[in-house]
Design a protein around this nucleic acid. Structure first.
Lengths: 174, 174
DNA sequence: TATTGTTATACTCTATAACTATA
DNA sequence: TATAGTTATAGAGTATAACAATA
């Protein structure tokens, strides 16, 4: 199985930065492989983990706020919370002031499970980045988180500002 | 629409590095939003782009090799090549030595389209990372590509080495 | 029998809209 | 009418296996 020791890697010389996106996808994929396995047993894996973490550490007034905080759709959040609630990790509490909204609170068990999950994720992430020297590892984490912060801070997701399609329709006259 | 200027961002203090994966997903998502739009008109968007780039710059002996180079399944590669070939960007040539294999070669048009695409992608990526100072931007690109290289070099994708499930079955005795 | 490439099927994730209950 | 949350449906992407042709 491990007979091919990827002699390819050395000749994968990057032409400019054209494969930044591919590399991003690769790292994220590996992250998922390790983290979903590390979080087996936690409802919804890494997605339940993200939800639980926000509920524990941040003070979101309602589900809509939580959804936009995580940049996911309200409808998927419903399923995530359903499972977390069924597992006894979070609760939906009706807001007496506005009976439409449900305030989310973590249970004691939820906090404990999150603490365990954080350890597991930290270990998994070390595995993902184990090919990098420690300094590079920290730099990567910082850079990625900073980039995500900047993205969230800067703009709505899906902005049609730079509509530049049609470039390939007749760029080369064959 | 843009009325919420995300006051959240400032209070998104990270607890340790737990949201590295979330941030990765965020950056990749933004990358896709920009790049797929920039590559509208190119068959299969960024995926066709990756295939085309490898066909042009690297020397892959057959489709299987190309698929494992990009870490995608052979079956999806079939569709990608179908579309690229239909657009006249690549050709499948039968190998006279082994009539099972198809050698992939880029057409002249394919090379030209790739050159245009590279420009578009570079612009799109600048947009994605425009929230970061230039130095950070370069550091991020390098770190991510290095991490991907390390991942590819180090192991098969999906390794069941660290099977640590069951951790959440009864971690807290409720 | 093993391998290259294709086709078909199922499963996950996401996006969208319709629906309810409150306001 | 507008908003919070839910439910239902359709699409993209991926994984898997079955299949054909060749070795």
């Amino acid at each position: 199985m491990s007979t091919h020791r990827t002699p390819a890697t050395s000749r994968l010389r990057r032409r400019r930065g054209v494969n930044f996106g591919w590399s991003l996808g690769m790292v994220l994929r590996r992250w998922h492989e390790h983290v979903e396995e590390a979080l087996a047993g936690l409802p919804q894996g890494s997605r339940g983990y993200h939800v639980l973490a926000v509920v524990v550490y941040e003070d979101v007034p309602n589900q809509n706020a939580l959804a936009s905080r995580l940049v996911i759709d309200r409808s998927v959040l419903t399923y995530l919370i359903d499972d977390l609630e069924a597992a006894g990790l979070v609760e939906r509490r009706l807001d007496p002031n506005d009976r439409r909204v449900r305030r989310l609170v973590a249970t004691e068990r939820g906090r404990k499970v999150l603490a365990v999950a954080e350890e597991q994720v930290a270990l998994a992430e070390e595995q993902v980045l184990r090919g990098l020297p420690a300094a590079q590892r920290a730099a990567l984490r910082d850079a990625v988180e900073q980039a995500a912060d900047a993205i969230i801070a800067s703009a709505p997701m899906t902005d049609p500002c730079l509509a530049v399609d049609g470039v390939f329709e007749q760029p080369v006259t064959d």
